[in-house]
Design a protein around this nucleic acid. Structure first.
Lengths: 330, 330
DNA sequence: CTGAAAGCGCTTACAG
DNA sequence: CTGAAAGCGCTTACAG
């Protein structure tokens, strides 16, 4: 089913059919227009985006390069981005990067399809020079993490504030010996969160000793192990800030295994506010990261850039402390 | 950067460059071949998939039509499908269907891009005749749910077995008064699971009374409310089968709110085995649904169909009971 | 108001 | 071993 078919059926040239079907009304008599529209409908004509993209030099498609979008945080981001793109008429071609496939290849595939821009959600690759190299060139890019060697607009949340909110909440409840289970230390997000967290503790006259900082890798199991390690090292700790909700769940489990009751014996603050946080026992106090809004914003900014508009280099969405029952006075 | 550029740089016609770059070796002298390859590398030539797709009449792309892939189950499926497609050289164009955008439009977009086939993961639309209508035509489709009015190959798991496994596990532990919190009743998956569940109870001489069946909508909150309702109606129930892990978490919460301890006062079996199931307190006994394998299989079958092979109409992957600490003898 | 030409970047027979 | 032609399905100036 091509333009030629609907043109033949309505007795005009295919160029005229093209104009009418593209809403170029007024360029044709009402009756001709009517005939063409009806023919297209009768035939079930669906324009060919590849042909259109070829001549227009725009695929009306964005590429999404994501770490591992079976992760609840990433998938929220990706879904919101996809919807925002769709609502502005753009398709979303998704490419995941992981151990088996390097970033070069994933980006190259996106370039072959001539996506109009790329959205990056790949914090695990923030230090990977190959990703930076693959992303060189004039193609618009918006990212939620920094990209090695490139200056691309970043949208996300203020990680330092996240750390500050967690610390101030616990300090406000009266905690003094506060520990933290972080994500991988080399990650920007972890460093920024630690910065805010540390500063708040220092400002309150309770500087954070190194032994109250234990590293995990975002997983349940690492959170559990790290929480055990933290409490083995310093059993006097009365509160823990976990760098994400998954780690927090692991910590909850560790605490339970040690016979500690929450929040009486130990408070836990998570980070993310994933869907299950509210339904844990006890419900998890956490800093809400607006993944959905971030995805929507990122897609919108990318589309703006594709449309030729100037966008700011950094766009931070507000985070918010959600107080539930996993924290209380010590 | 087009073929003409690399042809110009290596002193051949662009058609010859095309052949060499497509691995049509032997068709050209080694030295020419070498020159062309080097020119392409120097120029950073990336073939244009739209142009290629137009002439080959294949976009080398599949469409994925999903309900709401921020759901952990769906996102696992989609990710695995995307990876399987990528490993066979196919891009994945993702389209989500939800309240705001009807299925017609989402499918139409996919058709515009001339995807070579469509993967459907939209159980909430299994009764929607518009989706069925939109999917008519010769385009290969593989789905994890049935599609109204169409006979498309389905890949998934055996839902009746899932219900049977849950029932037999609880019966084996000695439970007799067993209740269940189901997903939406009109869904096939719910009906099949109920069938297996009911039959196993009946076979054990413990037919399921209607008041021990309460409907939820897959959400945490609905699971919580439904569990309360179940225990209000029949406080003698000693075990609950939840139709997914999210409902199970809600039920855990309800049980906790009623002062019941797990598994001593009540056992709970979930379904799915989402990542957090193992880390709940207590760890959740659940029937594992192989979402990842399903996604991989679905994509593989779709690609096979696209490749012209015949595939079976129904492909069920095995489910598996994972026993943890949320169940015990009554 | 409508049509014919040119061209987007490729691949694929077909010549030479 | 290499090139020229035709064509995939469109859009966009440009004529008439």
């Amino acid at each position: 089913m091509s333009l030629k078919d609907v043109a033949a059926r309505s007795g005009v040239s295919f160029q005229t059919a093209s104009k009418v079907l593209n809403g170029n009304s007024g360029v044709v008599s009402p009756s001709t227009r009517e005939r063409i529209l009806r023919a297209a409908a009768d035939l079930g004509y669906v324009p060919n985006a590849m042909a259109r993209g070829l001549v227009r030099q725009a695929s009306v498609t964005i590429g999404v390069l994501a770490d591992d979008f079976s992760d609840l945080a990433v998938s929220q981001f990706v879904l919101a981005a996809q919807r925002a793109a769709a609502s502005r008429g753009h398709g979303a071609l998704i490419s995941s990067v992981h151990a088996d496939v390097d970033a070069d290849l994933a980006v190259r595939k996106l370039l072959e399809y001539r996506v109009d821009g790329i959205l990056v959600a790949a914090p695990s690759l923030e230090d990977d020079p190959r990703l930076g190299a693959a992303l060189r060139g004039p193609l618009p890019v918006v990212s939620i993490n920094r990209i090695h060697g490139r200056r691309v607009p970043v949208v996300g949340s203020d990680h330092a504030v996240t750390g500050t909110l967690a610390a101030e909440h616990l300090l406000g409840l009266g905690h003094r010996r506060i520990g933290t289970v972080t994500g991988p230390r080399r990650r920007q997000v972890v460093q920024r969160r630690m910065h805010g967290f540390r500063e708040a503790l220092r400002a309150a006259g309770e500087p954070l000793p190194e032994q109250r900082v234990v590293e995990a890798d975002w997983s349940f199991e690492s959170g559990r192990a790290a929480a055990h390690q933290l409490l083995d090292t310093d059993p006097t700790v009365t509160a823990v800030f976990a760098h994400n909700d998954v780690i927090a769940v692991g910590a909850l489990k560790a605490l339970h295994e040690r016979g500690l009751r929450l929040p009486d014996n130990c408070s836990v603050v998570g980070c993310d506010d994933l869907s299950f946080a509210e339904y844990l026992v006890p419900p998890l106090t956490t800093v809400r990261i607006p993944f959905q809004e971030t995805g929507e914003r990122a897609a919108t900014l990318l589309l703006d850039r594709i449309g030729g508009r100037q966008i700011r280099a950094r766009d931070l969405l507000p985070v918010e402390l959600v107080v539930r029952a996993s924290t209380s006075s010590p």
